[in-house]
Structures are given as structure tokens and as C-alpha cells.
Design a protein around this nucleic acid. Structure first.
Length: 112
RNA sequence: UGAGUAAGCCAGGCAGUCGCUUGGCGGGAAGCGAUUCCCGUCCAGAGGAAAGUCCGGGCUCCGAAGAGCAGGGUGACGGAUAACGUCCGCCGGGGGCGACCCCAGGGAAAGUGCAACAGAAACAUACCGCCGGGCGGCCGACGCGUUUCGCGCCGGCCGUACGGUAAGGGCGAAAUGGCGAGGUAAGAGCUCACCGGGGGUACGGAGACGUACCUGCCGUGCAAACCCCACCCGGAGCAAGACCGUAUAGGGAGGUAACUGCGCGCUGAGCCACGCGAAAGGCGGACGGCGCGGCAUAGUGCCUGAAAGGCGCCUGCUCGGCGCUUCCCGGAAGGUAGGUCGCUCGAGCCGUCCGGUAACGGCCGGCCUAGAAAGAUGAUUGCCGAAUACAGAACCCGGCUUACAGACUUGCUCACACG
RNA sequence: GGCGACAUAGCCAAGUGGUAAGGCGCAGGUCUGCAAAACCUUUAUUCCCCGGUUCAAAUCCGGGUGUCGCCU
């Protein structure tokens, strides 16, 4: 069985883009929306604008690691779909800066 | 020491903490089900190009995987290999002082075609020039007859038509072997030496081919133009495909929103008819444009269709093969954003030895080394340190090509210095 | 991940060995009292890039880059 905590279906992504709220940051863009479930689902996305396969993998790992560290102290509120999209400015950044930016964005949108 | 050339090898390392993925073991859960998930612990966890997808093969399905045609590919010779357009050796040609490097390197007297422009001619062609004798004119010397001229002969120049000539000029990317001498009216393989080419003979070599001798020579380039010769190729691709689970058994002539017309939204200052002259009129979130929607009983158009002793299906075509029967379409089956398998033990990797110039092959011993499904390698601390470039497996393997910071090893060549 | 197609002026494009057609647009001109229409003129020299074959390449061959499409 597939992991239910991961955003997967094209329908969910389209709903996020059209009906969800968004918040742009320096390195990432944040989409979020209430999903009506008892748990939250997350997605991490890096388009071809970010770079080649190595740079896209690096961007997603930085975002996942940042969210993991944030959730260790202050967990995500349940009942949301959240999508993190990397911008190409994320290249050559270290984890601490990305974590700071994502944490600020999540606080402003009151997801944590 | 410097410059160069060829081959090989590495792709930051070690330790601690947190986190991710497969598998083994132990325990516990979820779902109608196929089956899956959670916790603890142990082990393992991207590349030399994983890339481009340019070749070749395995594997799977398609219609039996058959013949022919079409189409595509390769191209000196001998070998290696599962196979190749790859690799090794060797031949020929080209480059470099050299080590060494580069070459789609069969056939142009089998045929067809092309060779623009320029040029006389690009299958046999004479433009300028050179030469020859003929005719005409002019000039000069000589002789004869004679007197203000005529005739003969010799030489030169000009013109003219004819013939000879491919040595020279000119055109061109390319002009009927090159160069020198003889020869000739001028020229010409017409003759000769050397070089080049074709053919023949002999010898050497497994062969491509090489060497020697004889032979006077018959246009050139393009086959990555058609083509000929030899050899090879059925097509599609893991989203291939296999299994399981769940659900399900009728209906019947239309379908399609492409255009016009209709509605809504956005855009935003003009638009329409008449007339031509200076004016006057009508409409105006109009007309037009873009987007969305409705209408098939509004029109135009398009598609399918109830057909007949035939119809349908089959990789580009044919031979050939298969199926159907008297209305048609469906349904079932199968597939699909349900699950599992395919999914990694393989032409595998490492080492000694043996055969072979080498590519490679063989014996023996040892090893197991990613298999995800929004897609696993990250964060942080310390030490070494100049310290990192190109870059992420997606069914597997052998090659090629392309990208790339730097570090190291070995062989060989050239130059200089010293012994 | 696999398969396929394309790249020519600002836009649409023809050309498949011999110095790149055509249309729209832009600019200039003619005409007009002013416009529109019409007519005339101008606009490619790295034909996406790099090599090779050829006397000669947009065209043929090889490699690269970019864009687009399809996958029961």
C-alpha cells in the first residue's frame, strides 16, 4: 500500500493550485488547503526550471530535511494538504537557511 | 630537466549523533479480498560516464515468426565475440623529425544521371595563337621587255576561306598522364629515360597486398546521386507482458459542436448604411476580437451505418494464413489511475596459472554487490586536507558518442645538460 | 522511463546539390482635403550549432542543442 501521508493524485494537485492558498518565499513556494481528513498530507516538488536531476534531488532533500527538523519541535496542524515547490534560487544553499525560510512561511500561514 | 605521445587507475577519506529505502530475524496490526502496513534489531544502499538513446544482444508480446519484393544497414584483409557500425592484428593512403595519430577504405571499361556560372568545348571541342600550301592586295631586291608602265621570280606584311596542330594563352573545381630530351612545317607517347596508371607473367604471403620483369597508355570527378556486388536485418517495446482480486450480461439509429446563427464573461471607442461635398443620419459597453457554454426538430458541413455470394482480420506490400456466416452494434472476456510478479545470480565480479603478438579464451579458488514507485544517500560536529569537476540507477548486458576540476602510475619519443 | 517529429526574416512558410519563392507585418513613397483600399520599393549571407563528403551543402552523412507530440 502506498504511503497515505504523501500527496500523489493529479486531482489533489489541481485542487491545490486552483482552490488552495499560496505563499511565495525566497527559496520555496508554499501551497496549502484544508483537506477534510484527520491527518495532513505533504508534497515536495522541484520542476525542470530548478536544474538537472542532481539539483532537483538536492532541492527536494533540503526541503524534506527542513520540514523534518521543524516538525520535531512543532508538529504540523492536522487536516491540511501542503505542497512545497522549489525555486531555482535554492541551488547552492545550505540546510539552515532553507529551514529558516520555510519555518517563517509556515508560521505566517499558521500551519504550525 | 623540459616538451610530447600512448595506456591504465582514482573520483575525497575516517569517527560520532539524528533521518530515509530494500532484505533477514522477532513481535504486533489493517483490509470483503488479492495483499499490505507498523515497532525493535542486524546487514546492505548510485556512475565513469548512471547522460545522449546512436548501434548490438538478452527478455516479452504481436499472426506461423515462413518465402519473395520493397525498405534499412555495413563495406580493404584476417581474426575476436552472444552480437555489433565495437575491439585486436595487418595491408593501402595521408600527417608528424620521432614516439605515434587519422581515414564510410568495394565497384566509375555493367548501365542511368549530374557537373551551375564561365568557357570554343565538360562524350570528340579549334576562341586566340602556331604551321602549311592556295587566292587577293601592298612594299622591297633582282632579271627581261620596254619607257612614266608590264611580266617573271624571291622575300616580308596584311586580308580571306581551307587544312594540320592540344606544345603555349585564356575559362574553369576539373581540359584527354607529369617532366626532360629527341623529333617535326608546326606539333603530338610519334620515339626515349625517370615517375604515375592499366594489363600480363614469375616469386613471396593465410589474405588484403608487396617485389621484379614485360607491355606505350583506351579522358576526369561525384556511388554520404540512382545503382551494381557481397553480407546482415520481421515489428514493437518492461507504460513489454503474466497472474490475482473486485465489478458486470443487453440495446437498437444515429453520432459529431467544424462554420453561421444564440447566451455569458473579458477586451475597449468606435461601428453601420448611404453618399462623396462643406454636411447630415442610425447604433454604441455597440461592432469586432478572444474564451466558455447551450442547441443536432435552426441551417451548412463532417463521420459511422443494417451490406453482398460474399464479408471481415492479419507487421509496408504480395504469396500466403485465419475466421464468419445471413440485420447491426454491443455484452462477456481482456484492459484501465486496485494488488502482486516481471525486478535483479548475471555473456557477473576478484585473484593465481595456462594458450594466443593481441582482442580474447580456458582451468581452479573465492565473493554476492541498489532494486525505488512523487520515486530511497540528507543534516550536523570533529580531524586530515589544495580540495573538488561533470553529474543521480528505473528491465538487464556489450559498445560508441558527448560532459568533466584535479590526483597518481607505467612504457616510449624528441631536445638540452652532465657522467 | 520508452517512442517519434520539427528548427529557414518580427510571424506563417516554399525550397531536397548550383548565390533562399510567396504571403502577413514593419518602414519609405505614389494617390487623397485626411484616412482606408490599391500600387511601387526596402528587409535572410552564422538557413539552430559543430564537424565530414563534394569543385560547390539550407539540402547528403555523423555528433550536439532546443522545442513539441504520443505511450493499454
Amino acid at each position: 500500500m502506498l504511503n497515505p501521508l504523501v500527496l500523489r493524485k493529479e486531482r489533489d494537485f489541481n485542487a491545490l493550485y486552483t482552490k488552495g492558498k499560496s505563499m511565495g518565499g525566497r527559496f520555496t513556494i508554499l501551497f496549502y488547503r484544508k483537506n477534510g481528513l484527520s491527518f495532513s498530507r505533504k508534497g515536495f516538488l522541484a520542476s525542470k526550471k530548478v536544474g538537472n536531476a542532481v539539483q532537483r534531488n538536492r532541492a527536494r532533500r533540503l526541503m524534506k530535511e527542513s520540514v523534518r527538523l521543524i516538525e520535531a519541535s512543532t508538529p504540523l496542524k492536522p487536516g491540511y494538504d501542503v505542497l512545497f515547490i522549489a525555486r531555482n534560487s535554492i541551488n547552492n544553499q545550505n540546510c539552515a537557511d532553507v529551514k529558516k525560510q520555510i519555518e517563517a512561511a509556515m508560521k505566517r500561514t499558521e500551519l504550525i
